[in-house]
Amino acid sequence: MYVCICAAVTDTELRSCIAGGARTVEEVGEMCGAGTGCGGCQDHVDVFLAAAHSPSEIAGLPLTA
């Protein structure tokens, strides 16, 4: 799925940039170009960043009941 139409950046490429160290929308833009055109995808990029860098609410739950 395309996250950024202007730069033809897919969700897979975006995740790769984040895994490669991108921590901000600006850093993602420098790495793959997402968010540097019209800017319409910057909120989507921010959601991917938050999901990757924020701890999950379920991470601290026990694995068994």
Rank of each mutant, 00 (worst) to 15 (best):
38 C>M: 04
17 C>F: 05
13 E>C: 03
62 P>T: 03
9 V>C: 02
44 H>S: 15
63 L>F: 04
50 A>M: 10
55 P>Y: 04
53 H>T: 15
51 A>D: 14
49 L>S: 04
47 V>E: 15
6 C>D: 15
47 V>A: 14
50 A>I: 11
58 I>L: 13
16 S>K: 14
12 T>F: 06
40 G>A: 12
4 C>H: 07
13 E>A: 14
13 E>Y: 01
33 G>M: 02
49 L>I: 07
27 E>D: 12
45 V>R: 05
40 G>V: 06
56 S>D: 10
44 H>R: 14
28 V>R: 01
55 P>L: 10
8 A>D: 11
43 D>W: 01
3 V>H: 04
54 S>R: 14
8 A>S: 13
29 G>K: 07
46 D>W: 07
36 T>M: 11
65 A>G: 13
39 G>H: 02
19 A>D: 12
35 G>C: 10
51 A>T: 09
53 H>A: 11
21 G>L: 07
28 V>H: 00
42 Q>Y: 01
18 I>H: 07
11 D>V: 01
57 E>R: 15
55 P>Q: 12
43 D>L: 11
12 T>R: 12
1 M>P: 15
11 D>Y: 04
45 V>A: 02
63 L>Q: 07
16 S>M: 12
41 C>E: 00
20 G>R: 09
10 T>V: 06
50 A>R: 15
14 L>M: 13
9 V>E: 00
9 V>Y: 00
28 V>C: 00
10 T>P: 02
59 A>P: 01
10 T>K: 06
23 R>E: 01
25 V>K: 05
1 M>Y: 12
19 A>Q: 10
41 C>W: 00
9 V>P: 00
50 A>C: 09
27 E>C: 04
27 E>S: 07
34 A>C: 09
19 A>Y: 06
19 A>P: 04
42 Q>I: 06
39 G>R: 05
7 A>K: 15
30 E>Y: 05
54 S>P: 03
10 T>N: 04
42 Q>E: 11
48 F>I: 00
12 T>E: 14
18 I>A: 06
50 A>L: 12
8 A>W: 08
37 G>V: 06
48 F>T: 00
36 T>D: 02
35 G>F: 03
